[in-house]
Design a protein around this nucleic acid. Structure first.
Lengths: 202, 202, 202, 202
DNA sequence: AATGAATGAGAGTTCATTCAT
DNA sequence: TATGAATGAACTCTCATTCAT
């Protein structure tokens, strides 16, 4: 009963490659079929390795899933931070962050599907996912209030409102539309609502 | 391969009672364990009937789940409509609706858990759930714009923003807090963000 | 645990009608689905009665099936006897019997299907079915030999050969051809083989 | 949902041995109990493997059965061909074939029982079974007619008559007699009827 | 004479995981 | 490092049958 971390120590180059192959295959299969219908057989088949090989690199199905959730969280936050750090006003930055978020969702539509599964399968990781994104939002909003760039308000609730808007709009216009990018007018509408939540004029 | 509807026709009083017992037990078990870990055995045990009895009333596990999702949707919309029809300004009404929504979530915290499961298990019902709530919002927002009660805006995006705020705040303050009612200051904060989304002063 | 016979005593007119309705429905369902896929639910549904009603008239599924096999045997033998008693030479009579047999099979194609099922479900009845038909054949063949109408031979084996020819031709040209009547040239060919088995010139 | 063929590719020596063990056990159990009463539990118990092991090698119960039917067909045809190719007249060859057929049935009495089940379970395979044997007969009969060895006739119907005789005699004297070999006088009688069907003097 | 409700054993099948090689 | 083979518990669902009304 060793952990996934144990098993990943001291991997040679070949081992690392195999590990990554499994990880990639798993993302594909989880996204397509959901956590429960994604069997180890299917994942290892997709990765082109034997079933036994899986357990050399991962402690189990759940642990693999948890790692995947954490990965996604890291990637989405990086995309958003990069975009919103490009300078400009708080509003411009937040809008850029939103656009990056939508772009990320459009490119990795599985994000939602995977996150929704996490409710029961990896609740700790799910909570962390939201917590991290929201606390990033909150920190930036609070700073903008302090600097007078946006009017005072409830930064945490505003942050959750932004999070919720992203989730819903992503679901509505990306997931429900065969993963096409969000149309421009919706993007504009979203920007307008973001402005209202921030309490600034467009 | 008869449908659930087929099986529910011509039920006597006793049959209807049994059906309801199963339905209630199923809600409890689904909420606690999630769709996949909720087995028919556990559900029928909780209902106090034999396994075979289940299939007298339902076509299968999935169908039962779908019915449950539809049920929840009906109940939550009724709670919201009742609350927001109590008169007053659009903002007051919408706030009342939100309060009702939170109250409902606090009383039936399983709502979220069940809905999140639906992404893979009953996607049609899930979509309908959001669609119906959002189209209610949208209609009311549009009417309020027409009457000049709230400034013009993108009613549909505003509706999704409200939906997202409800989802996130419900998750954050109800689900993550052992289903306690939402604290007053959060309720106030929410109301403030709702006002901003509607574009009105508090 | 009373027998089917017990249950059929002292039936009123209404009861007899219900019994017959079930019997007819059962034949249809057995023929279509085979013994095992024909459930009591389907049979009673087809008969338009409740499940419980079935057990007023029959001791069980197997017993019902056995009765059906016996029924079929009675009917097919009656059809053959009637046809072959119409006078003429032994060959003419036997040919008439064959024609009657084919006609019966074409009209009741389920005969085969049901009989094949009987191998495991009602072996005694199946054996009786063949025994009775063959012993009829044998008796008539022996009489024809004694009277010098056909040359001497092994009556019992000839009888089984006739039986086998009927079975195979029925399967090949009736069952495998959507229950169309046997085409004339096949009928002629059969008659020719029958003549050979009997040892007479055509 | 992979096929049996899929699962049998790339089997090592050990795997092939296990597969054969299951196949053998299945034949025994099917023959004894019939298709429906032969459960996977009983088959795997008889084979001495776990239930899950079954599905490593076979796509399902039906597929296993179909393979068994095809196997039997192959074996019986090989036995017949070998025997009837030993030279001599057409009649002598056909008699040898019959003897081989009876011997095979006596040695593998399950043949019948399994074939009869196939009517509903694997109709395609059943039809192929008969078709192949009969078309072998037909071809040989036609050749014998062309060479003048046997008088002209309807080769296909004669073939079905031979098939039917084999089936019935096999059932009557092998199956109904605890699988004893066919007694000599019956064998002689059969040979006599075969001669008649072929249209030759004994 | 008839019914609707209930039963529970047993069916076929899947799957995460282990292990000898 | 990788594999193929094996496991067995758990799953959803079916069905002949019984029984109170």
């Amino acid at each position: 009963m060793s952990t996934t971390a144990d098993r990943s120590r001291r991997l040679g180059a070949k081992g690392n490659r195999t590990r990554q192959r499994i990880l990639d295959a798993a993302e594909t299969v989880f996204v397509e079929l959901g956590y429960h219908d994604a069997s180890i057989v299917k994942i290892t088949e997709a990765a082109g390795v034997a079933q036994g090989t899986f357990y050399i690199y991962f402690a189990g199905k759940r642990e693999l899933f948890e790692e995947l959730v954490d990965d996604l969280n890291r990637r989405v936050r990086q995309a958003m931070t990069t975009a919103s750090e490009s300078g400009g006003s708080r509003l411009a930055a937040e809008r850029a962050g939103f656009a990056a978020y939508f772009a990320f969702v459009a490119e990795h539509p599985g994000l939602y599907r995977i996150m929704r599964q996490a409710e029961f399968v990896a609740p700790r990781q799910l909570r962390q996912h939201y917590d991290r994104i929201v606390s990033g939002y909150t920190k930036r909003l609070r700073a903008a209030m302090d600097s007078g760039e946006i009017p005072p308000g409830e930064p945490e609730l505003m942050a959750w409102a932004l999070m919720g808007l992203g989730e819903m709009a992503g679901m509505r216009w990306v997931l429900w539309h065969d993963n096409e990018p969000v149309p421009d007018d919706v993007l504009a509408g979203t920007a307008s609502v973001v402005a209202r939540i921030l309490g600034v004029q467009e």
